[in-house]
C-alpha cells in the first residue's frame, strides 16, 4: 500500500482510539488528567528503554501503563492529603515530564527519541518503520500497535458499557448499585495510558491531548446520547486527521500540528451550528421572531 494511505490509516486509528477514550474523560471532567498523562508517559517510555534497551512494542506499553497509573495515583494521593486538585495535577505531571526530559538528554546519544519528536510526533516517518514477520513486511509497526490498543479499548467499552456509563454520569448511584467505581477509574486511566503511548510515537504529546479532548467536546455539543457521542467523537477525530493531513501536505508543515488545528476548526464550526447546543440555535431561541 502506498505511503499516504498508511499515514491516513495511522491518523484514523489515533482518531478513533482517542475519540472513544476522550468521551469518558470529558464526561467525567477529567480532561486535564489526559494532559498530565500524555506528558508523563514520556518518562515511562524512557524508563522502559533503560530497562529493556529497546524502543518499541510491549516494554514501551508496560512502561507507559505503569507511569500513567502512577500519575493518576500520585494526583489522587496529593489531593487526599489536602493539595487542591488543579495544583496536584500541575505538580505531578510537570515533575515526571521534567525527569523524562532530563533522562533523555543524558542518554541522548543512545536513545532514538529526542524531545521535540516526543512533543510533536513524526507521523510522516510511520510508513518506513515496518513490522516484519518471516522476512515479509506486513505494514507499519505503529498501525499494528494502534490496532491492538483499539481492540482493547473496544473490548473494555463493550464489556463494561453499563458500568462506565453509570459511573461517568452519576458516581454516587454507581456506588449504591455496587459498581466498583475505583476499579473503573483505574481501568479508564489504563486505557488512557495505552492510547496515549500508542498515539504518542506517531503524533506526539500535544496532539494526543487535542485528539482526546477536542473531538469529544465537539461531540458533546452535537448529542445527548452516550452511544452517539462515542461514534460521533471517533468520526470527528477521523475527519480532523484527514483534513489535517491534506492541509499539512499542502503547506508543508507539521502533520500533527495541522491535525490539532483542524480539530480546533471543527470545534469552532460546531460551536455555532450544532443543532441543540450550538450558539446560533440558542440565540435564535432567545430573540422572538
Amino acid at each position: 500500500m502506498s505511503y499516504t494511505i498508511w499515514i491516513l490509516l495511522t491518523a484514523t486509528l489515533v482518531g478513533i482510539n482517542c475519540g472513544l477514550v476522550g468521551t469518558f474523560l470529558v464526561l467525567r471532567k477529567m480532561s486535564m488528567l489526559s494532559d498530565a498523562i500524555s506528558h508523563s508517559v514520556l518518562l515511562g517510555i524512557v524508563g522502559a528503554y533503560m530497562v529493556s534497551h529497546q524502543l518499541q512494542g510491549v516494554s514501551m506499553l508496560i512502561g507507559a501503563l505503569l507511569v500513567g497509573l502512577l500519575t493518576t495515583f500520585l494526583v489522587q494521593l496529593l489531593h487526599q492529603k489536602g493539595v487542591q486538585s488543579d495544583a496536584a495535577i500541575g505538580v505531578v505531571f510537570t515533575c515526571l515530564f521534567a525527569i523524562g526530559v532530563v533522562l533523555i538528554s543524558l542518554f541522548a546519544d543512545r536513545v532514538h527519541l529526542d524531545v521535540e519528536h516526543a512533543l510533536m510526533g513524526e507521523i510522516a516517518f510511520v510508513p518506513w518503520d515496518v513490522l516484519e514477520v518471516g522476512g515479509r513486511s506486513i505494514g507499519p509497526k505503529a498501525v499494528w500497535l494502534l490496532g491492538f490498543v483499539l481492540a482493547i479499548n473496544i473490548f473494555v467499552i463493550v464489556f463494561a458499557y453499563k458500568e462506565l456509563k453509570i459511573s461517568s454520569f452519576d458516581s454516587e448511584m454507581a456506588i449504591t448499585l455496587g459498581i466498583p467505581v475505583v476499579l473503573i477509574h483505574y481501568v479508564l486511566m489504563g486505557m488512557l495510558s495505552l492510547t496515549t503511548v500508542a498515539s504518542f510515537d506517531s503524533v506526539g504529546a500535544i496532539l494526543v491531548v487535542a485528539m482526546l479532548i477536542v473531538p469529544s467536546a465537539t461531540a458533546y455539543l452535537w448529542t445527548d446520547r452516550l452511544s452517539t457521542m462515542l461514534i460521533c467523537s471517533a468520526f470527528i477525530g477521523v475527519l480532523a486527521s484527514v483534513i489535517g493531513y491534506v492541509g499539512a501536505t499542502a503547506f508543508n508543515v507539521s502533520i500533527s500540528g495541522a491535525i490539532a488545528v483542524s480539530t480546533g476548526v471543527i470545534f469552532f464550526v460546531s460551536l455555532w451550528i450544532a443543532p441543540k447546543h450550538g450558539l446560533l440555535r440558542k440565540w435564535m431561541k432567545k430573540s422572538p421572531a
Binding site: 480532561s31 486535564m32 489526559s34 494532559d35 512533543l119 510533536m120 500535544i206 496532539l207 491531548v209 487535542a210 482526546l212 479532548i213 477536542v214 467536546a217 499539512a248 503547506f251 508543515v253 507539521s254 500533527s256 500540528g257 495541522a258 491535525i259 490539532a260 488545528v261 480539530t263 480546533g264 470545534f267
Partner: peptide, 14 residues
C-alpha cells in the same frame, strides 16, 4: 482549557 491549550499549541507547532 484542554481544547484551547492543545489547539493553540498545535497552531504554534504548525
Amino acid at each position: 482549557i484542554g481544547i484551547v491549550l492543545s489547539v493553540f499549541f498545535g497552531l504554534g507547532i504548525v
